[in-house]
Design a protein around this nucleic acid. Structure first.
Length: 296
DNA sequence: CTGTACTCCTGGGGGC
DNA sequence: TGCCCCCAGGAGTACA
């Protein structure tokens, strides 16, 4: 399947919302893993902490999926660059929140299978698939998860009301690194990835190469407001975008057609009245897309 | 402490 | 058709 989700905050949030009704209350009957290592080794007691217990609820922190269990542990899942989660029952993929990308057939990059019994007695499996294996599954004590090795250093959630321009500026401090790289740094703010950083900077008309600490109070506030706006729009569109991924021909969903700058090299800048052209540069070894005319 | 370069992987696409 | 090279959502680590 040529389709892909882009696991930044909106995509993870969409997966979480889709999993929630299926996983809540479901009992884990069995767990199996492939021979391949993911980014992080499974904990020694991975199986013992999962099998026989029930999921309580599913949530999100940064780009991590957090599924709380009824044994005071939480299952932590990160999709990395290419991780996918599917639910399969009776050999058929269950379309959860319209997110379905393949049939129930096993594929070679399936790494973790969690067999479940739903509250209605129905049997199904959660399958973690990840070709590049940059993702991870781990466990943490639910009440100490914010201090766990994965979460301890994380910055504020971008959609929290407490995340303001002033907070962004205080997290940036004296850093002179390009604002693009500062926004990708999960210690400053979580959830933003390469796509939404490009989109937010374009919307705020801020040049990606600006020193992070050079933003004015107003610019920081605008950047925060626009980040929230693009993330909320992407979450709202997430379902319909992902829905299209179920198409057998692999047609991509609609959201990438709405990108202002990301992957739009050579195209006219979509800003009103702007006659600029979207350019591509490399920052921190990764592509940045922007308009040099309206992003200052 | 900051900033950067590199690393882990597979697969798709373009050029020749 | 088949190489070969470049590129791709993330983020930890090492090093100047």
């Amino acid at each position: 399947m040529p389709c892909s989700i882009m696991p930044e905050l909106p995509e993870v949030e969409t997966v979480v919302r889709g999993l929630q009704p299926f996983l809540s209350g479901a009992k884990i009957a069995n767990v199996s893993t492939s021979q391949h290592k993911l980014r992080f080794p499974y904990p020694d007691d991975f199986m013992q902490c999962l099998i026989g217990f029930r999921f309580l609820n599913v949530g999100r922190r940064a780009k991590y999926i957090v599924a709380d269990l009824d044994n005071e542990n939480s299952l932590i899942i990160h999709l990395g660059m290419s991780g996918r989660i599917s639910l399969v029952g009776n050999g058929q993929t269950i379309s959860f929140d319209d997110y379905a990308y393949q049939t129930g057939a096993m594929s070679k990059h399936d790494h973790v299978t969690i067999d479940l019994i739903g509250t209605g007695g129905d049997e199904f499996s959660l399958i973690y698939n990840d070709p590049r294996r940059f993702g991870l599954l781990d466990l943490a004590r639910t009440d100490k998860i914010h201090k766990s090795r994965h979460f301890a250093h994380l910055g504020p959630e971008p959609l929290d009301d407490e995340f303001t321009g002033a907070v962004l500026q205080s997290k940036i401090g004296k850093r002179v690194t390009p604002i693009k790289l500062a926004l990708l740094n999960q210690e400053i703010v979580v959830g933003l990835g390469n796509i939404y950083v490009c989109e937010a900077l374009h919307m705020a008309h801020i040049h990606p190469n600006r020193h992070a600490n050079s933003l004015s109070v107003n610019e920081a506030a605008l950047l925060v407001a626009n980040s929230k706006q693009i993330l909320r729009a992407a979450i709202a569109a997430g379902g319909s975008t992902l829905k299209d991924f179920a198409h057998a021909d692999g047609t991509l969903g609609g959201f990438q057609n709405e990108f202002l700058a990301y992957d739009q090299t050579g195209k006219p800048c979509p800003s009103p009245k702007c006659k600029g052209i979207i350019e591509r540069i490399i920052q921190g070894g990764r592509s940045t897309f922007f308009c040099g005319k309206c992003q200052k």
